[in-house]
């Protein structure tokens, strides 16, 4: 029987691979941003699962700390990408704003 954490590590690897493919292949910037978030989430899942390799006892706090740092850096990167995207949008189509109401 496989340990549960191994299942999550494998799922994390495939999630990040799927995300990486979309980052490289997709043309639309917004989709690239969503894909990069999924890529990052997959990497975090691998790290968190690796922290739980020992079947008993407490999990390894060092990879957990790294993921905690990584989540905040990922949200910073997302915000920066979105701000750049919004700027690009304003530059390209100043009159094409969708009616928000």
């Amino acid at each position: 029987m496989p340990p549960p954490a191994l299942l999550y590590a494998l799922a994390g690897i495939w999630i990040s691979v799927i995300g990486l493919r979309s980052v490289l292949v997709e043309e639309h910037f917004f989709r690239k941003i969503v894909a990069s978030n999924i890529f990052g989430s997959g990497v975090f899942l691998v790290l968190v699962a690796l922290a739980r390799r020992a079947p008993e006892g407490p999990p390894d706090p060092v990879p957990q700390g790294m993921v905690l740092t990584g989540i905040v850096v990922a949200v910073s990167a997302t915000a920066l990408m979105l701000a750049l995207l919004g700027h690009l949008h304003d530059l390209e189509k100043p009159d094409n704003q969708e009616d928000p109401s």
Binding site: A49, R52, P58, P59, V67, L68, V75
Partner: peptide, 25 residues
């Protein structure tokens, strides 16, 4: 996998704040 700290952070930042940022954009 016993990462309660991270689960809280992911729910709040990874899902909540990121989603709010994307919707705001």
């Amino acid at each position: 996998v016993d990462a309660t700290d991270l689960a809280l952070t992911e729910a709040a930042i990874g899902s909540g704040v990121t989603g709010a940022l994307l919707l705001a954009a």
